[in-house]
Write a protein that binds this DNA or RNA. Structure first.
Lengths: 143, 143
DNA sequence: GTTGTTGCAAATACTTTGCAACTAT
DNA sequence: ATAGTTGCAAAGTATTTGCAACAAC
């Protein structure tokens, strides 16, 4: 599994004419292997620094994430207050996010009807959706 | 109309214990009076500098927009590449945005069914929506 | 050996803030 | 007169970039 994802990553690097390096490996393995699904670049960077013996800089974290996002291994969540969050996308299906304003907790949701409705709205105006951002900022019902 | 919106703004300033100044007036009147519905802070600032005799700084534009956003006279559109856009919200009904990736054009849309579906999704998880961001990044169907 | 990659520090872009001068009340 | 407001320039924040040293092929 860890192996499969790394092979896939290598193929992507190849397809882009990029080299396979320890730094790139460790960035992808940190994102892909962590239970933390919603972290910013700095959290990912610090996590690597703490547990990995490989030296990696913030610049390289950002540069590697760019490649991962481009090839849909990682999803970038933006539109939040302070920078973007990143989540592993490999073997995960599409979903959007509900962000609790009281706890900062992030809840994932997916609704097929809603997705279809979106497509339809775009189509009616003569467009097709390339990507979308759908975030619900919420509070617990009893608050 | 211009008058009504300014009276409302004065009331809001009062309610916040803020003073009515030429600078604040001109920022709100620029946003409320313009046909341009999707501008960033700098565009609004420059537009004021060009046509108004009142001296206003960028800092004041940002500070005034904060008040306007807080009181729902202005909607902040974020999650875009470079900074936020602002639109007049007075006497306008809720809508979301479709952003054309080819032209940068912004198309507004509103779909009641979609709004209800959203509420329902949040409710199912025990939350109520405070605000939401829904942006469709699109391309023309024939491209 | 050649060419891509890295870390660093500086640059960038948008926005916020401290402060002394100014202005509304 | 007093307390809030302004403009300015500096600081802040997240991310990107130029470049010399370095590593993968």
């Amino acid at each position: 599994m860890k192996d499969k994802s790394m092979i896939l990553f290598k193929k992507i690097l190849q397809s882009e004419g990029l080299r396979y390096t320890k730094q790139r490996e460790v960035v992808w393995s940190e994102i892909n292997g962590s239970n933390e699904q919603h972290r910013n670049a700095d959290q990912i960077y610090l996590s690597i620094i703490n547990k990995s013996k490989v030296k990696v800089s913030r610049a390289t974290v950002y540069r590697t994430i760019d490649v991962l996002v481009k090839h849909n291994l990682v999803k970038k969540i933006d539109g939040l207050e302070n920078g973007s969050l990143y989540e592993n996308r490999l073997d995960r299906k599409h979903h959007d996010h509900m962000i609790c304003l009281e706890t900062g907790n992030i809840i994932e949701f997916y609704n097929k009807e809603l997705e279809l409705l979106q497509d339809q709205i775009a189509e009616e105006k003569g467009y097709k959706i390339v990507r979308h951002v759908h975030q619900l900022f919420v509070k617990p019902i009893d608050s």
